[in-house]
Each structure stands twice: as C-alpha cells, then as structure tokens.
Design a protein around this nucleic acid. Structure first.
Length: 421
RNA sequence: GGAGAGGUGGCCGAGUGGUCGAAGGCACCCGCUUGCUAAGCGGUUUCUCGCCGAAAGGCGGGACGGGAGUUCAAAUCUCCCCCUCUCCGCCA
C-alpha cells in the first residue's frame, strides 16, 4: 500500500511510478474517488456530531422527567440520514480500496528505469560465464545417470513439474538446506522459524501477492492458500503489531516448501527442475526502521550472497529495473548463478526491499524514540532456493568422467561424501 | 468434532444502556521528597480517521475480539463469525 496522502498531495510521484513500471492504471480516477470519499467522511462526522449532541440532551431531559418526544424524533431522522451517508461512504470506500490496492510501490531513486531485463544493471560478480575444458552436460542427464533424480516417476505422482530427489540426491538437497540455515542462524544471527505454510488471503494481501498474483496460488479448502514463499508467513508474524524500537531489526530465517502454479509458463522451460510447482527454499526476512532500512537491505544481500560464494558458484548480482520488479518492491537485487550445462544464468535469489509498502498493508508499526508510531521497513531475500542451487551444483561441479564433486563446505552435511558417482 | 467458560488500554482487572476512552492496580516516563540492597507524594502515558495549519499544534469523528442488528443513545441487549481456556471424543 502506498502512502495515501500522496493521492492528495503529490499525485505526480505516483504517476511517475506507474509509468516507469508499465502499469495500466488510471490514477485520475483514483484521485477522484479519494476526494469523494474524504467529502463523505467529513459529512458523516458532522452528522454524527449533531446526533450525539441531541442524544445527550435527551438523556439529560429524561433524567429530569421532561418531555423528549420532539428531540427523539429529530435524533431519529438524523440517525436515518447517518445510515444513508454511511452506506454511500462504505460503497465508495470499498471501491477506493479495490482500486488503490493495485497501485504499485514507488521505485527507489537508485533503480534504473526500464521495461525489461535488458535494462537491469550489473552490480558485481562474474561478467562472463566460466569455460570448461570438456563437454558439460545439463543436470537432467547427469542426475538420471547417477540416479539422484527420478524425472520420469515424479509426474506419475503429482504431474509435470514436480521433483523427486532420490538417494544421495535427496541427501544433497537436505545438506544444502541445513548448510544455508546454519550460515544464517550461526553466522548472520537470524532467528530460525518453522512457520505454517497454509495462509489465509489476509496474509497474502499483506505481503502483496494478492490480488495481483492470485492465479499463481494453490488454494485449499477453508480459504487457505499454500504459501508461494516463506516471505508470506514470516512477514505476517508481526501483523497488526507495534514493535518496540529496541527490538528492531528483527531477522528471521525459515526453511519451507514453496508452492506456485505459475500457470502459462509451460513450453520452453520444461526440461529438468528449473521451474517447478513445489520447491524448497530457505528465506530471509527483516523488519527494520526506515532510517536503517537500506543499510540492512545491503546486509541482507550480502547474507544471501555469502552462501553462493561459499559454494564457489559462478555468480553475478543484478539490480532489477523498474519494469522487472514485482509491484510491491521498491528495489530488488537478483543473484544469478551460471548453470554450465543449461548454459544460462539462473536466478537463485531475489532480494527485495518493500520500504513501508507491505507494512502499510499488514499494519506493522514500531514505536519511534520520540514515542510516535510509524511503519517499519520490511525486506526479504532467498537464502536460497534449492532446485536451482541443486542444478548449479550438479552442472558446475560435474567432472569429465561423469561424477559430481561435493564442495568442501557441504561435505560435513553429507557424511563427508566427496563425490556422487 | 461435542459441552462449558471467556475475549476490555503495555499488562492485570472493574464496569447498572446515557455523564465511560473507560474505576482500581501494576508497569512506564517526568517532577518533588527522603537518603541508602529502596520507599513515599504528585503528575503524565491508547490507537485511528477527517478538517485547518509550512510546522508546532488546534478542532472534531471513530475504536472495549471481528461483523451485522435493536435503540434518540451500546463495552453493556440480540444474531453470526473468529480466537483462547477447561472437560470429553478422535488422532500422527
């Protein structure tokens, strides 16, 4: 949710944001609705004030045993009028809310303006993919040969685009997850959470998946949705709260499965496990003050980057342009790892700062040192997701003779295995 | 899933349909006082929305789990929903 006073005071800021993101939104209509709604609120308040005065008088007179009939009639007609205006106001308010929830966040000043990935900005890391001195294979070939993925039987259980890790493959995935969690909890100081991943619409609205991405969610009975990312439960932990200043920043990490329909993404990228409906991810979420927001955001990026660095993956960090960010984000970095076999850069982590956008939607505030309340900054990043780190590991650590070497840092998590062969 | 009890301010806890944003206590902060492993006295302290204002602030509306209703008037009465606790049932 954007700051609604902007509609009244600085609509041009919103107009630019909408344009730069390529959103199709008629801001003038929303500004008009806002005016109408404010006028109705003012009218309502005046009416209520009058009604209260009359009611109070009725009370006084009744206690004195005096006649109140005329006044009560007046009060009743006021009450009727109030109900009338209330109804109008509620309708306008609902329409306003519906429209305003589609307004995207305002991009941070450092974000390049552009419409597609070609406008994204290289920040650091490898500029050119690494070169191998033998013919590298894509992960599906290696993993089937080594019997660590069963790509044929997974669809039998759940349909296409589901993963079945097997044997050392399953253990390798578990090793990655444990490795990530250990780094973030022990080295970076995050508190580990194991949250429920069935969440109601209100949570998804809070983090900004709703209403725009509704079609990408798996909906269960009881109006619960399978979380597409642990960002949803983690960010909603402090919903409707006022957090003490001394408790900030709050840093959470969680390993959870993630569920995404991603309808319509079939076609080109079906091979292997790059794009699937269910995957595992270690997520990082922070709540901070606005002052510390961007410093904490850079630290968050470093925390995510640390795991791909420790795994010695070929990677680069990109700053997404205005048109490439999700609509709730003010600034987003992607960490991309090169997959030697697929010969492409894979997005293994997306690190986003939402500023106060999610906090307004989920009503997450903190007490300022002066004693006021203000919205916190929320931000999150993958830390990181497994199918793609699994791909990166397999494809970059494959050997000429068809084995997979296990990186040093991971060996303690996988019975000190040196090679999958 | 069945039966019962309950949800009030940062916490505990009162509250007869009108003078209750809410007694009392705790906590907190600010004064004062005494001096001593601390106490006493006084005062302050909810959130939100609208309007005016450059701001400081001012004026007003609303909020006692959430929503609907009855009434001139609802924390207080009625209905629906959610959550918590106790007992029973079921169960990895």
């Amino acid at each position: 949710m954007i700051d609604l006073t902007l509609l009244k005071e600085k609509p041009e800021i919103l107009r630019d944001a909408i344009k730069h993101r390529g959103a199709d939104i008629d801001l003038d209509e929303i500004v008009e609705l806002d005016k109408k709604r404010r006028a109705l609120i003012t009218e309502l308040q005046d009416l209520r004030k009058e009604r209260n005065a009359v009611s109070e008088k009725v009370g006084t007179l009744k206690r004195q045993g005096k006649e109140t009939k005329t006044l009560m009639e007046k009060a009743r007609s006021l009450a009727d009028k109030i109900k009338d205006v209330e109804k109008k106001q509620k309708n306008i308010e609902a329409e306003f809310k519906e429209r305003v929830q589609w307004l995207p966040n305002i991009p941070h000043a450092s974000v390049p303006v552009g419409s597609g990935s070609e406008a994204n900005q290289y920040i650091r890391g490898l500029r050119e993919p690494p070169v191998f001195d033998f013919d590298v294979l894509p992960h599906w070939d290696i993993c089937e040969a080594l019997d660590v993925l069963d790509l044929k039987r997974a669809p039998k259980i759940s349909g296409s685009r589901f993963i079945l890790y097997k044997g050392l493959g399953a253990l390798l995935e578990r090793a990655l997850i444990n490795f990530f969690l250990d780094i973030h909890t022990k080295k970076h100081g995050y508190t580990e959470i194991s949250p429920p991943v069935l969440n109601p619409e209100s949570c998804l609205y809070g983090t900004g998946q709703f209403p725009k991405l509704e079609a990408d969610m798996y909906k269960c009975s009881d109006d619960l949705y399978l979380a597409p990312t642990a960002e949803v439960p983690l960010t909603n932990i402090h919903r409707e709260e006022i957090i003490a200043h001394k408790n900030l920043p709050i840093c959470y990490t969680a390993y959870t499965p993630c569920f995404r329909r991603e309808a319509g993404s079939y076609g080109k990228e079906v091979r292997g496990i790059k794009r699937v409906h269910q995957f595992n991810k270690v997520e990082l979420v922070k709540y901070t003050t606005p002052e510390d927001g961007y410093a904490e955001f850079e630290k968050l990026l470093n925390d995510a980057e640390e795991v791909v660095r420790l795994l010695e993956f070929p990677y680069r960090i990109m700053l997404l342009c205005t048109g490439d960010m999700t609509f709730a984000a003010a600034k987003t970095y992607d960490i991309e790892v090169y997959a030697a076999g697929m010969k492409e850069w894979l997005e293994v982590a997306s690190i986003s700062c939402y500023e106060q956008y999610q906090a307004r939607r989920a009503n997450i505030r903190y007490r300022t040192p002066k004693g006021n309340t203000d919205y916190v900054y929320t931000m999150n990043g993958s830390g990181v997701a497994t199918p793609r780190t699994f791909i990166a590991l397999v494809e970059n650590y494959q050997t000429k003779d068809g084995r997979i070497e296990i990186p040093e840092v991971l060996r303690p998590y996988i019975n000190n295995t040196e090679y999958i062969e």
